[in-house]
Amino acid sequence: MESMHDSPIISGDTLREIISKAPRNLDHLDAELLFVDRNYILHYLEGNRHIYKSLTSDILRRAFDNEPTDTGWLPKNIIRHGSTTIGNWVVCFFPQQRYRLQVQSEQLYVPLPSLVFVGISDSYYVWAVKKIRFNSQLLIHHAPLPNVMNDGRVCWGNICPLIASLSTIESTWWKFIGSTFNQDYTQGKSIKFDNIIQQLKLQNRRARISNRSRYPTSDLIPIRDNLTVEEAVEYVTKSTK
């Protein structure tokens, strides 16, 4: 057990300088780090000269993080991961495939297009793309699903999603896709039908007839401004509150 004598002793002169107004004279300090409108300024002495050096957040992160990190083996669907001041964010890609969807009281077995699923803190987004292979420059479209808002944000209803992380993102995806969908946010997601549930029911009938049926990507509607996946991810990771 450490005793009080093991802790560093700060002199009165040093303490007085610490609590003085910045920038300090550095008479008793080696340096100081100033936070100015999200900018980081390192103030130190070179001889008698006061030096002020701007630092990036990456440099600071490396300076303070001396512990090795390891994500472990990542699920194949995870394609990007990062962090912001409000939490971690993760991007997943699910190529076109068939799902069992519970739509109100009816269970549907439907093919869906490739989907991009983004989690940031406790907010989640889902967008459709027209290709089987992922590319960050693909245009995003409205996911052909109820309970997804106009910008792609998932409306969870009374479900409390987990905070987004590398270890929770896939289970959150299956919680979403396995939830019961209702009539909320069903408009503006199909060229052919006013209500996306009508398209899902049509695809359900076709899937039961042929194993080769695919979701008609020509029926997808682009999200406003024709955003790419890269642009959309950048937008939501900077704007989500």
Rank of each mutant, 00 (worst) to 15 (best):
H5E: 08
D6S: 15
D6N: 14
I10W: 04
S11M: 08
T14H: 01
L15P: 00
R16K: 15
I19S: 12
I19F: 13
S20K: 09
S20Y: 05
D27M: 10
L29G: 04
V36W: 07
V36N: 12
R38Y: 12
L42W: 06
Y44L: 15
L45V: 00
H50R: 14
T56N: 05
D58T: 06
D65F: 12
N66P: 03
N66L: 10
E67T: 15
P68K: 01
T69M: 13
T84D: 03
G87F: 08
N88C: 09
F94A: 04
P95E: 06
R98S: 15
R100E: 11
Q102C: 13
E106A: 09
E106N: 14
V110S: 06
V116R: 01
F117C: 12
G119H: 06
I120A: 06
S121M: 02
D122V: 15
Y125A: 02
W127C: 01
V129F: 06
R133V: 07
F134E: 00
F134Q: 07
S136H: 13
Q137A: 08
A143P: 00
A143F: 01
L145N: 13
V148T: 10
M149P: 03
N150Q: 11
G152D: 08
R153S: 04
V154P: 00
I159R: 10
C160N: 10
C160V: 11
S165A: 07
E170H: 03
E170Y: 03
W173P: 04
W173C: 01
W174C: 08
W174S: 12
K175Y: 00
Q187K: 13
K189W: 09
I191W: 05
K192H: 08
K192P: 02
D194L: 15
Q198F: 05
Q199V: 09
Q199P: 01
R205W: 05
A207Y: 01
A207F: 00
S213I: 12
R214W: 05
D219A: 03
R224I: 04
E231G: 02
E231M: 11
K238Q: 14
K238Y: 08
S239L: 06
